[in-house]
């Protein structure tokens, strides 16, 4: 095998693997990504039932209804619109009324968002970024959410 041939084999291999990787990525990007929507967007865009999406907003105060079979219903709001969500399973520790939440799932025909996973904000300092952005856009951002820690009355040198 000449030097040139060897190099050709190498290059062919590399191109092959790169093409494989690119193909896999493009294929996966088409099928397995999920868009994030605020309740207002879900209502405005008439999201088709069955297509997967992430829904983010605040859990509406007083909207949580639990059954004894681990079925939970609650509403997610961004201040303008609310979307009813149903979920079967155990909610995260930090799931609370009035707090940020992200539900992943799809709309059913009745307009209920059927979630198969629910994420709550991680701690009091952290709020899912999409939720924060969406709320900001709707003008329902609570400023104290990212209140600067420096404002403690002490003078920072």
């Amino acid at each position: 095998m000449t030097r040139k041939k060897r190099r050709l084999v190498l290059i062919a291999c590399s191109v092959g693997v790169v093409a494989l990787a690119a193909g896999l990525i493009l294929n996966a990007l088409r099928d397995s990504i999920v868009f994030f929507h605020s309740p207002t967007e879900i209502v405005a865009k008439h999201l088709a039932p069955g297509s997967r999406a992430r829904l983010g907003g605040l859990v509406k105060e007083g909207s949580i209804v639990r059954s004894d079979k681990l079925d939970v219903r609650f509403e997610v709001t961004d201040g303008n619109e609310t979307v009813p969500v149903t979920y079967h399973g155990i909610l995260p520790d930090l799931f609370r009324e009035g707090q940020g939440v992200i539900a992943e799932g799809a709309l059913d025909n009745a307009g209920h968002f059927k979630a198969d996973s629910v994420l709550a904000k991680h701690d009091e300092k952290y709020m899912p970024k999409e939720v924060a952005d969406a709320l900001k856009k709707q003008g329902h951002w609570k400023d104290d959410y990212d209140k600067k820690v420096g404002s403690t009355g002490g003078q920072v040198q």
Binding site: V17, L20, A21, L24, I25, N27, A28, L29, D31, S32, I33, V34, F35, F36, R54, E104, E130, D133
Partner: peptide
């Protein structure tokens, strides 16, 4: 990709385990 897409088009997406199972796994 989600960061880039958001910066360019403003659309927010999440790329989760299914994506990586379809790409990382086969490789």
């Amino acid at each position: 990709y989600p960061l880039a897409l958001e910066a360019v088009s403003g659309a927010k997406i999440s790329v989760g385990a299914p994506f990586f199972e379809l790409t990382f796994g086969p490789l």
